[in-house]
């Protein structure tokens, strides 16, 4: 343990209201602390710069998975284990379940949360690609009220996002419009379990009369944020998923992502594998 633990504070509010009041009263002083699977790693390494945290782990207001006719809504503290075991998610949002099952080992899945995965804002996170492909919306709450916004666009740069210091990510909402979609999720790491993604690819698509009616294509670990490839999607609309289309789509994809070399992989590899995954996804949509 490299951190000077006496300098850190993890305070436990009795309720969501109390947590929000604390966030509001001292803006920027407090940050939320959920399952700890990311923050504790930084702490151990002596690299956790922020000192004061609110322990939201016990806030039941932020738990639970609820379904209406139009949406499934997940509390921000929904763990990867809870995601995987939910029958509606398994049926309608299989990529999210797959992402959850491929994040860390079971002990991490029991503790890691969807909200934490979003707010930690790692471009290598496993669930955001699936959430973006499912057109997720997120709810930010504060003592000022609540606002829903599309998850797409929430992250603005590396570890940057549209959240005010007094706001807390409370819920994630998925529209139940996945009927008839083909789901394609692939996390590429060096090993099969407990890997950090070198490339993470999530996409859904639908064809009609041999043509691509709709695609949503998201790639992680290839840019400072997880990228929804909107231009590629636009270029694909109405096309047949043939070799020519695939080649054009890959060329478009290259323009939308900006992978780098780091200790886990190379830019060249990430780019090539992202193209391969896109090609493979589109090939699955061939009739």
């Amino acid at each position: 343990m490299r951190a000077f633990i006496p300098n850190y504070q993890l305070t436990t509010p009795a309720s969501l209201a109390e947590a929000l009041t604390l966030l509001e009263s001292e803006p920027g002083v407090w940050k939320p602390f959920a399952g700890g699977t990311d923050l504790m790693v930084l702490l151990e390494a002596g690299r956790l710069a922020h000192r004061n945290y609110i322990n939201i782990w016990g806030l039941n207001e932020l738990r639970g998975i609820e379904a209406t006719d139009t949406h499934v809504t997940l509390g921000a503290l929904t763990t990867y284990t809870e995601v995987q075991t939910n029958p509606i998610l398994r049926r309608e949002f299989p990529m999210l379940c797959q992402a959850a099952s491929e994040t860390g080992g079971l002990a991490i899945q029991n503790r890691g949360t969807l909200g934490g995965n979003i707010v930690n804002a790692s471009p290598a996170a496993d669930s955001p690609p699936a959430l973006l492909a499912y057109d997720a919306e997120i709810e930010l709450v504060s003592n000022r009220g609540s606002r829903w916004l599309p998850y797409q666009g929430f992250h603005t740069g590396y570890k940057q996002m549209h959240i005010d210091p007094d706001e807390l990510l409370a819920r994630i909402r998925l529209p139940r419009n996945t009927a008839g979609l083909t789901h394609y999720y692939r996390k590429v790491g060096t090993r099969k379990a407990q890997a950090i993604s070198k490339v993470c690819f999530a996409a859904v698509g639908k064809t009609g009369q041999g043509k691509l009616m709709e695609t949503r294509i998201v790639v992680g670990s290839v840019a400072p944020i997880v990228v929804r490839c909107v231009q590629t999607e636009a270029a694909l609309r109405g096309q047949r998923p043939d070799e020519e289309t695939i080649a054009a789509a890959c060329a478009s994809l290259v323009r939308e992502i900006s992978p780098i070399d780091d200790i886990r992989s190379t830019a060249k590899y990430r780019l090539q594998v992202a193209k391969n995954l896109l090609a493979d996804f589109l090939a699955t949509l061939r009739t």
Binding site: T190, A193, I196, I263
Partner: peptide, 14 residues
């Protein structure tokens, strides 16, 4: 890459 997260040894599924 002096962390077990980034120096990759085989897990039970590898």
């Amino acid at each position: 890459n002096n962390q077990m997260t980034n120096y990759i040894i085989p897990t039970p599924v590898d």
